[in-house]
């Protein structure tokens, strides 16, 4: 069992590796951009200026402008808000539902466990992009649908980990001790299982952020996700791609921003995983 891991030592351990430090810096930048977009952005992301189409980067437009003369930097910053919102909503949904289903699978009857596991298998075997195409074909593109589709496809991810964690803890002496004291199942789940399985699930969630960001970008690129004019990274790349003959700068910059953010979250997630991994705590 890992001892209670304080936040400070974990942060120190993340920052002590190159990958972790770089990842943390990028994550911090993206999060700040996402939360304080109106203040971080230099322009209104939707302000069209047809006289400034495909402007090169300059002091007025740090990263240049797009086909409608909108400030690319500001659109990227606002795109971060969309990306983070979609990621947090989808992962939050998957984390909640997946954890509850996983715990239920581990604790309730064998029949329910089998049912839940089959459900996980079905969801996991469905490619999210195909699912998204099908759903969008029926309901039309929408941000909410993107969140729901991505969220549902991630449920098995969290559900399986939660189930495995609970299975290993289920017969732990401290759980038996709580039952002997008369604690109800709900109390045991929320007071005793949750704090002890939270670590691995949070790590998993952080590693899923870049996955969700790329899926959202992919769907938006295909025109199936966030609808224009709302700025999203996938949409920015699509726009840049559509006007590739006019200027190469928007597509390069948008793609680079997406790649950098994904890399940052991945590095951060890996560092977090290593930092809370009890096997790396080599104290006697």
């Amino acid at each position: 069992m890992s001892p209670p891991t304080g936040a400070i030592p974990v942060i120190v351990r993340i920052l002590s590796t190159v990958g972790g430090a770089v990842g943390a810096a990028i994550v911090l930048a993206v999060v700040v951009a996402a939360v304080f977009a109106p203040f971080v952005a230099t322009h209104d992301p939707d302000a069209i200026n047809v006289f400034q189409r495909f402007a090169d980067p300059s002091s007025a437009h740090w990263l240049g402008t797009d086909q409608l003369g909108r400030d690319l930097y500001s659109r990227l910053v606002h795109g971060a808000t969309v990306a983070m919102a979609v990621a947090l909503a989808a992962i939050g949904m998957a984390l909640t539902i997946g954890t509850l289903l996983g715990i239920a699978a581990a604790l309730v009857t064998a029949r329910i466990e089998r049912f839940i596991l089959i459900l996980f298998d079905i969801i996991a075997s469905f490619p999210s992009l195909v699912l998204a195409l099908a759903v969008v074909a029926v309901f039309g593109p929408s941000t909410v649908l993107v969140v729901i589709i991505v969220g549902v496809t991630l449920i098995p991810h969290f559900g399986r980990v939660a189930r495995a964690q609970v299975l290993t803890l289920k017969n732990a002496p401290f759980i038996e001790a709580e039952r002997l004291l008369g604690a109800s199942t709900l109390r045991i789940v929320f007071r005793h299982f949750m704090p002890n399985i939270a670590g691995p699930l949070v790590v998993l969630a952080s590693m899923d952020i870049p996955v969700v960001i790329t899926i959202e970008a992919g769907l938006s690129f295909l025109g199936l996700g966030v609808r224009p004019p709302l700025a999203s990274w996938g949409g920015l790349i699509y726009d840049g791609y559509s006007f590739l003959s006019d200027s190469k700068i928007p597509v390069i910059i948008s793609s680079a921003a997406l790649g950098l953010a994904t890399l940052g979250f991945t590095l951060f997630g890996e560092a977090l995983r290593d930092a809370v991994d009890p096997r790396l705590n080599r104290d006697p």
Binding site: P4, P173, F174, E176, A177, L181, R187
Partner: peptide
């Protein structure tokens, strides 16, 4: 239980562990 240390929920402080029976009952 035989293993007394393992019979205490690892992420709770002793005080909370001791007060638990009061809440449960």
């Amino acid at each position: 239980l035989q293993d007394a240390v393992a019979s205490l929920s690892p992420r709770m402080r002793v005080r909370a562990l001791i007060e638990e029976p009061l809440t449960i009952h």
